[in-house]
Amino acid sequence: MQATTGEKIAFRLRWLRRRPSLVLGAVLVGFIVLMAILAPWLAPADPYQQNLMQALLPPSADHWMGTDAFGRDVFSRILYGARLSLLEVALGVGIAVMTGVPLGLVAGTIGGRTDHVIMWLMDVLFAFPGIVLAILIVSILGPTLINMLIAIAIFSIPIYARLTRNLTLGLKQLEYVQAARALGAGRLRIMFDHILRNALGPIIVQATLTAGTVVLTAASLSFLGLGAQPPTPEWGAMMSDGRNFLGVALWVSFFPGLAVTISVLGFNILGDGLRDLLDPRS
């Protein structure tokens, strides 16, 4: 049966309408991505240009979101900050996934003592409250954006290791995986070819949800003075600097706070939508 183009589009629209979280999440995250890409064209001012005589001006036609304590344009800094937030998400989630997933795969596939040791390590890491571990790590490595991301990634590793291991254990029992083994495929190949491909869905869902956590934890660490260093227009650092003017110049922290909330909201909603899509059971 041939479907016309119109029917196809209508079908897709209907499909999307039944998944409002997916659409809303994608729109919000897409909005942040657009900000990041278009920052140089949209920003009315250089995000680093100070003008101390114009410090802490309220929002106006010249400065839509006011100026900060150094007379920099808050709106321009928020636009450029979107780039940093996306970088944080990519790196923070990336490191956690790249470390946690292989560990879980190895533990689940090989089993035995290897499994015990890896899972013991993961339990130890998981026992640390995330912020406490991050405080320790950043205090040791020094407060930079990258070190902060390493810290955030480290406490997310156990989540991916456990998730992947459990998925692996489940998939190992499946007929076709066992069939592949019977056909003489090597253990490594089975791991990557079958298990990983099938476990990808839940991992992507989890990664989207972790993205929100990364942005929020980054803000908390900035609050504790352990985040990005000045003059980086990082949203968490901007909120954290701006909080010292609360009650007098709310805009300095309000707009970065709004940006953080919107982006975390976007990732959380998108994660929900993806879960509904990829895991029909829940």
Partner: peptide, 13 residues
């Protein structure tokens, strides 16, 4: 979902 998306120190202040 909003409650899970707000930075707590900011909300607190």
């Amino acid at each position: 979902i909003l409650g899970a998306s707000v930075a707590n120190f900011w909300l607190a202040l």
